[in-house]
């Protein structure tokens, strides 16, 4: 099992080196990865380059936990267009 990461827009360039299969889809091992921010680090993506983050289809923050089998989606800065007042960003910082 791995963590599947779906990259959108110009972030796909980050995937080109390792990508196989569906466009923008990267699979990474979960070693050392506990939350969304670790996924960004593993792919050398700075937080400032991102807009919306999703874990398994749930609008999420950097501290949302991730595990093997999860799907993480990362949208670049210039694709931010969510009606954010309708969404609650999920985090796990209490645990």
């Amino acid at each position: 099992m791995v963590i599947k990461v779906k990259l959108y827009g110009n972030l796909r360039e980050k995937a080109s080196r390792s990508a196989e299969g569906a466009p923008g889809m990267v699979e990474i091992e979960d070693r050392g990865i506990k939350m969304v921010s670790d996924v960004l680090n593993a792919l050398n993506i700075d937080e400032a380059e991102t807009s919306h983050l999703f874990v398994n289809g749930k609008y999420s923050g950097l501290r949302k936990k991730v595990k093997n089998g999860d799907r993480v989606a990362i949208f670049p800065k210039n694709m931010g267009l969510l009606y954010k007042w309708y969404f609650r960003r999920e985090e796990n910082d209490q645990e």
Binding site: K6, Y8, G9, S51, H52, F54, G57, K58, Y59, A73, F75, K77, N78, M79, G80, L81, L82, F87
Partner: peptide
């Protein structure tokens, strides 16, 4: 603003930028 400025989401992709976002949100 990131959404409305030149080079922002609406300017670069149009409203259809939402297809991937809302699909990702299920």
């Amino acid at each position: 603003h990131d959404v409305t400025k030149p080079g922002g989401a609406l300017n670069s992709y149009g409203t259809d930028v939402l297809i991937n976002i809302i699909n990702e949100a299920g």
